[in-house]
Simulated scan of single mutants.
Amino acid sequence: MKELQKGEYYGDHYQKVDLGGMILTDTAYTHSKVDWHYHQNPYFTYILEGQLFEANKKESYTLGAGSLLFHNWDDAHYNIKPPGYTRGFHIELNKEWFLKYDLGQDGLEGSINLKNPLVKRKMNSIFMETKISDDHSPMSIEMLLVEVFGLMEGQQQNQKPPNWVRKLQELIMEEGVDSSLGNLAAQLQIHPVHLSREFGRYFGTSFGNYVRLLKVNKAFNMMVSTKLSMTEICYECGFSDQSHFISNFKRVYQMTPSKMLGKISRR
């Protein structure tokens, strides 16, 4: 089985940023299939455009734009790319980086499918920093990545949440939630007070912010992966009008969608 060395990925790199303890790459996948292999260092794979099928010895994933995986050192896997264009963003970290920030890796074995919109917000901001690429970007990337691992640690601690948490995640992700607190609690078969008190514990933020982040992150991914107009993206992501879309996007990413689009273009 092949071991890929530091900064080595199958495909063509649009950009490679080496910050010593970490390497960040913006890559177009060019192989229809990559046989079993593993990487020398742990890393993130964030699919920006297209699709990718990945399987390890325990699980398999069909990944689309916005999918985010973390792979540890011992994670042997293979990939199949469907026909069409697929683009991914990788962040590879060496062992010294984890020691530098006193970050343990307990519970981070194999692959982890990261769905938390707070984590994806940080990942989008890291990707943006590689495109801004000014004197402040390296420190910003380091700080954002440390925050990512803090959120991941919290996710691992809550990896066996109550059934209502999983059901609510599915409701928000698949159907959206447009009802009163009482109706939502009834759907989940829990008391409204319990839902109100416990939501932040399992979701890491308020209900409104969680839903807004899902919408804004979806817009970010569509800006990278589609050629839809801003108006089409606005309504596809569930915003009532362009004004709400722009204000929410700017609140999260500190710039307008149009300015963002200019920074995250393919090359």
Rank of each mutant, 00 (worst) to 15 (best):
Y101M: 09
E8R: 09
A55W: 01
Q155P: 04
Q187V: 06
A219R: 04
N158A: 11
V148E: 01
F70S: 01
G64P: 03
W36K: 05
S180N: 02
Q157D: 11
Y10Q: 12
T25P: 01
G110W: 00
L52T: 12
R197Y: 09
E96Y: 11
E232C: 03
Y85V: 12
T27V: 15
I190P: 06
K6D: 12
P117I: 02
V165Q: 07
N72L: 00
R87V: 05
R267M: 11
M222G: 03
Y38K: 11
K6Y: 13
E59L: 11
E153S: 14
N217E: 08
D74T: 08
L261A: 15
K6V: 11
H77G: 01
G7K: 02
P138S: 06
I264E: 03
V17C: 06
G204C: 04
T62R: 12
L213M: 14
R267L: 14
G21W: 06
P42Q: 04
D18Q: 08
A28P: 00
Q40H: 09
G208Y: 12
W164Y: 15
A219F: 08
I264C: 04
P82V: 10
D178H: 15
K95S: 14
H90K: 06
G11S: 09
D106F: 02
T226H: 09
L114T: 00
F89A: 02
Q156L: 15
Y46L: 09
L63N: 02
K100Q: 13
S111D: 01
F249A: 02
G50I: 05
Q155V: 08
L144R: 12
I172Y: 09
V34C: 07
S111R: 02
G262F: 08
P161R: 07
L184W: 07
S140D: 09
E129Q: 14
L118P: 00
L195C: 05
S179C: 15
C237V: 08
W164A: 04
